[in-house]
Design a protein around this nucleic acid. Sequence first.
DNA 1: ATCACTATCTTTAGCCG
DNA 2: GCGGCTAAAGATAGTGA
Lengths: 238, 238
Amino acid sequence: MTRKKVKLAYIPSDSARKATFKKRKKGLMKKVSELSTLCGIEACAIIFSPFDGEPEIWPSPVSVRHMLSQFKNMPKMEQSKKMVNQDSFLKQRIARANEQLKRQRKDNREKEITKVMFKGLTTVGKLLQQDLNMLDLNDLGWIVEQNLKEISKRMEVLNKGGSINSSSGATAAHSSSQGEKKSSGFEQKQQRWLLDLMNPKQNNTGGFRGEDVIMFPFGDGESATTHSNNLWSNPFYP
Amino acid sequence: MTRKKVKLAYIPSDSARKATFKKRKKGLMKKVSELSTLCGIEACAIIFSPFDGEPEIWPSPVSVRHMLSQFKNMPKMEQSKKMVNQDSFLKQRIARANEQLKRQRKDNREKEITKVMFKGLTTVGKLLQQDLNMLDLNDLGWIVEQNLKEISKRMEVLNKGGSINSSSGATAAHSSSQGEKKSSGFEQKQQRWLLDLMNPKQNNTGGFRGEDVIMFPFGDGESATTHSNNLWSNPFYP
DNA sequence: ATCACTATCTTTAGCCG
DNA sequence: GCGGCTAAAGATAGTGA
């Protein structure tokens, strides 16, 4: 049987199109997944289809979040390093050292990925910004008005809450040491500010929590009645 | 020769990994492209690789922007519709009607896509928001301080600039009429607010332009010295 | 490193139940 | 419409220049 060579064009038939869509979407997602694991990189695919309301997203939304949260766990790595150094038996030491090396490599790779990804994230952010700026925001003066209302509240709360210490400890050392032979250009500087940014300070005495709002041109866009479901939702506490 | 069946795991060798990455990235992009054209849907893929600094993005960043800008051109479609109706020769009329129908169909599809995509965009926006919220923004009190400084300025300007008219004309009619046999659930309501949102008002007398800043957790993240290159850039005027 | 080649593996169009 | 099947089309791992 001669199965024709599918010309690359919009499939007119609704049913055929949907069928092809489902099949190919599946295949595509698999490909993304494979690329990600094989090459140890972060990737995502987003598919907006009329067939389902929500856009299809790979990987799970949580995975990106998880990646960023890794920064918080980095200091712990330092500790385990010290532990290994104080071990006594030679064999165990070698074994552990190898373990360590392996982990180190993995960790290095993860850090590297995270760095790249984070840097990239800002690019994506810019992109989305630009797209959303297309909405001719000049016409939406009421947004600013809304902003101002919320902001006055925020001002009050802040002024009451006292001064907020913004310099983070940033004691987390950068452990690039041995391991990976070629780490493709870690920049100490950037890495440092990322650490500073990521290193959490437990000082939560600042007055701004929960109710404070700075409007954001993101949201579900369906209703403008509720606050949490507003076109302009809170970027600081979603 | 027995070429092995590639086990799905991280490729340790730097060179092999990079080679595979390049090949597969290419293939993946092709797949996305094919899916998009075959099924008439919008999709994008973003790949963060340590091999190149910028993330790879499909399709071109402009395409997303272009899509949104289509909304602005919609009213023109109405005009061409009328023009066709006033034609006199039967043959020409039929020919033109068919042309029109074709365009209408295309346009309907594009509108539909845009609707879905726009709705999805907000979901993506939320996603990115959440991810960026991981930065423990509580620790960055200075951001809020910066915000407040800029905001006081904004308040002044706004109060001086008079009230800003926020109700847009929204006269653009919704033309779903004939054509596409199955338009997979256009929602009048949502379509309407999109139109309202998109329909530009030429009233640019409002006082806020250029210098006003509401800080945003997006940016290039490299330097914090210049304003335009700040970690927190201006969402309203990028 | 980068290209081209191609044997082999993978995806998928078209059918059928 | 959905899931399984099968052969054609397509992608790519390994290789050598």
